[in-house]
Design a protein around this nucleic acid. Structure first.
Lengths: 182, 182
DNA sequence: GTGCCCATGTAAGTGGTTACATGATTCA
DNA sequence: TGAATCATGTAACCACTTACATGGGCAC
């Protein structure tokens, strides 16, 4: 989805070359995000044009490596994106991305969004449980029904686990304040 | 990813019109898959050309509704896709899709694939836990570190939950046989 | 007869994927 | 000197998204 912002946030964490970004996007830190080097180079080019990032010239002489850093405008763009992009219950990796942004330039006030997403997740969980009661309450199920039940259970577990995790995060924000500073 | 096959499987479960498919893809059964009506109509058109599906003409007179059903060729295409598409640890919703196919026209022999995906998930979990020890073992963490830890925990929980679910499915297949019939 | 849902489509734009391409550095 | 890795890019294709468009049926 929001590849440019993912890149900006990665660059805020650590100024890097396109090549380094591509490797970082392959690794554990970015397990919830992927981008190929073609995307990265294209976006870097666009973001230079937009004035969000710039090449650090220092060591450009020695190697061909172009290290990019985020300019103030780019930083503000990240903050704007976090503020103005409304996430739905499905956008869990986008929430993780926002958390990464909050970790680097935060606090950005994510509590309300988290609460909204949790409400949505609870609703969905209720829906799934209702389906569970209605369709899979019977004592004996056919093979096909058992498999469909397994699919539903995958959804139920996912929601439950995410909600537990989200509740812990909420507790953290409660202690922390977690509000944007201005 | 594999929109045409998702549609084929939905049609195997129940012959439907494009409109009905679009609604079904919005609902709980397809919580792990989404497709807009434009995609659906396009794919239906292509699949008619390919001879995978056909319009049931019966009630075409009464309404404009075109109900599609899967032809034998399309059914074989689903089986082929399930057999030949190798999934990685990330392709959880594709596994769910394969399970749906297995529920309608199975058993298709998914045990080996499941085992492979579980191995991958365990490896990844080990990686995450190693990072956890290395980076977040300290007694006191900064705010930013705590948030990054939360992100990592989201990954850990996801893997753990999925693995538990997968183990149950594996147990089911073990009892069931679960092998493809030929 | 107005508004809403049913039902099917076209068109334009954008972003991601795959393939192609180049050249420098490093190590055996 | 040959292979692997570093490092950056272009081009073509394809899929998905968003917007636009049309018209029938039904209920108030």
């Amino acid at each position: 989805m929001s590849t440019p912002h993912a890149i900006l946030i990665a660059l805020l964490e650590k100024p890097s070359s396109g090549y380094d970004l591509a490797r970082r996007f392959d690794r554990a830190i970015a397990y919830f995000w992927q981008a190929t080097h073609q995307q990265i180079y294209r976006e870097l080019g666009r973001m230079v044009d937009a004035g969000w990032v710039a090449v650090v010239e220092e060591d450009a002489a020695a190697t061909r490596k172009k290290v990019y850093r985020v300019l103030p405008v780019g930083r503000e763009e990240v903050a704007r994106w976090v503020r103005e992009t409304r996430l739905t219950g499905d956008d869990r990796n986008l929430l993780l991305l926002k958390l990464r942004a909050d970790a680097v330039i935060g606090p950005l006030g994510l509590m309300e969004e988290l609460r909204r997403m949790m409400d949505e997740a609870r609703e969905r969980l209720d829906t799934y449980r209702a389906i569970e009661q209605r369709d899979f309450g019977a004592a004996s199920l056919t093979r096909g029904q058992q498999l469909q039940y397994a699919i539903l259970k995958a959804g139920i577990r996912t929601q439950e686990t995410w909600l537990e995790w989200a509740a812990e995060l909420q507790a953290f924000f409660d202690e922390d304040g977690g509000q944007a500073s201005e």
